[in-house]
Simulated assay, not measured.
Amino acid sequence: MDLGLKGKSVLITGGSKGIGKGIAASFLKEGARVGIVARSEDALHEAKGELGGDVHVYSADLTDQSERHRVFDQFLSDFGSIDVLVNNVGGSSGGKTMETSLDQFREAFELNYMSAVHFSQLAVTNMREKGEGAIVNISSIFGRESGGKPTYNSAKSAMISFTKSLADEVIKDGIRVNSVAPGSILHPTGNWQKRLDENPEKINKFVEDEIPAGRFGRVEEVADVAVLLASERASWVVGATLNVDGGQSRSNF
């Protein structure tokens, strides 16, 4: 299926590994031009080599507002405009709420949530000039229910709410905003792979008990949904957050 993304300019945060790199690969297969952002220059250049295609890399600390401005301005300088923004960068820290400092909650929100809000504001300003564009936020099933760390859950929950509110605000400008909520995804640089290596019996039991499909998800399965949402093939999908989890989520909405 031709998704009509050939030649489109796509910016992906957290694009040097895992789900972000998988999303970049899926856009490149569709003929898009891609920019990926991450903190590590080494990881970015390694990803660029693996991805091939028309890829630009940008090293930045995305918890820093001025760094986000710098990256976006450089992207526009390199690509001319932006057609698709994928807010994928994220991470978690801390433990139970009473064991986690307020600073850790603030840091989680700055990375997972505020970076998405800020990049979206910057992107919408440019997209409005063209009268079209798409934003895809990578949330989590734990933005809808308990399961991950409270710092992460809270930030991803805020992202889901933000997705709907921004979508309703900018659809009249021809800009669609949606979100993907992955479940447990296995990839070489992720926490699930580390846990599986450390305790295969425990993690295999987790999969058996918690994921109805009976296996971890693959990066490509998240990436393909993100790319579809960014395309005109999903033209009537506005403000949605789609679970990509093999049935893992316990929510029914």
Results as ranks from 00 to 15, higher is better:
Ile138Pro: 00
Arg106Tyr: 06
Val136Tyr: 05
Gly80Tyr: 10
Ser120Lys: 03
Asn112Ile: 05
Gly80Ala: 11
Ser93Glu: 12
Val124Tyr: 00
Leu76Val: 13
Ala123Asp: 02
Leu102Lys: 09
Ile82Glu: 01
Ser161Ala: 15
Lys149Arg: 15
Glu99Trp: 09
Glu145Gln: 15
Gly147Arg: 09
Met127His: 00
Lys156Ala: 06
Ser139Gly: 11
Ala134Lys: 07
Asn126Tyr: 07
Gly91Cys: 13
Phe119Ala: 07
Leu85Gly: 04
Met98Cys: 05
Tyr152Ala: 07
Phe109Trp: 06
Ser77Lys: 14
Pro150Leu: 00
Gly80Trp: 09
Ala155Ile: 04
Ser77Glu: 14
Arg128Leu: 05
Ser77Gly: 09
Ala155Asn: 07
Ala123Asn: 02
Leu111Asn: 02
Lys156Gly: 08
Ser81Phe: 13
Ala123Cys: 03
Ser120His: 03
Phe79Gln: 15
Asp103Leu: 12
Leu85Thr: 05
Gly148Phe: 03
Met98Pro: 00
Met159Glu: 12
Leu85Met: 13
Leu76Arg: 06
Ser101Leu: 03
Leu76Tyr: 03
Glu132Leu: 08
Ser93Asp: 10
Arg144Asp: 09
Ala123Pro: 00
Leu85Lys: 04
Ser92Trp: 04
Ser93Arg: 12
Ile138Lys: 03
Ser77His: 11
Ala116His: 01
Ser92Arg: 10
Gly80Ser: 11
Ala134Arg: 05
Gln121His: 07
Val136Asn: 04
Ser101Cys: 02
Gly91Val: 03
Glu107Leu: 15
Ser77Asn: 11
Glu107His: 10
Phe105Ile: 07
Thr100Val: 03
Ser161Val: 14
Ile82Trp: 01
Gly143Glu: 01
Val117Phe: 08
Phe162Pro: 08
Gly131Cys: 06
Ser93Val: 10
Leu85Glu: 04
Ser101Pro: 05
Met114Glu: 11
Ala158Arg: 06
Asp83Trp: 01
Val124Lys: 00
Asn137Trp: 03
Leu85Val: 12
Gln104Phe: 08
Thr100Arg: 00
Lys96Val: 11
Gly80Asn: 12
Phe79Leu: 14
Tyr113Ala: 08
Asn137Phe: 04
Asn87Trp: 01
Ser140Gln: 04
Tyr152Leu: 11
Gly95Arg: 04
Gly131Lys: 07
Val89His: 03
Val117Asp: 06
Ser92Val: 09
Lys156Cys: 11
Met159Ser: 10
Thr125Lys: 15
Tyr152Arg: 08
Asp103Thr: 11
Ser140Trp: 02
Ile82Ser: 02
Asn87Met: 09
Ile160Thr: 14
Met159Trp: 07
Val124Pro: 01
Asn88Tyr: 04
Pro150His: 00
Glu107Trp: 03
Ser146Glu: 14
Val89Trp: 00
Gly147Glu: 07
Lys149Val: 15
Glu145Tyr: 02
Lys130Gln: 11
Thr97Leu: 13
Asp83Leu: 09
Ala116Phe: 00
Met98Phe: 14
Asp78Lys: 11
Ile82Gly: 01
Glu129Val: 13
Ser101Lys: 04
Gly95Pro: 05
Ile138His: 01
Glu110Phe: 03
Glu129Asn: 05
Ile141Met: 04
Leu122Ser: 04
Ser81Gly: 12
Phe79His: 15
Ser157Met: 07
Ser161Gln: 14
Met114Pro: 01
Gly131Gln: 06
Ile138Leu: 10
Ser140Tyr: 02
Val86Gln: 02
Gly90Ala: 12
Met159Leu: 15
Ser115Lys: 07
Asp78Tyr: 06
Asn126Lys: 15
Asp78Arg: 09
Ser139Gln: 06
Ile141His: 00
Phe162Ala: 13
Glu145Ile: 07
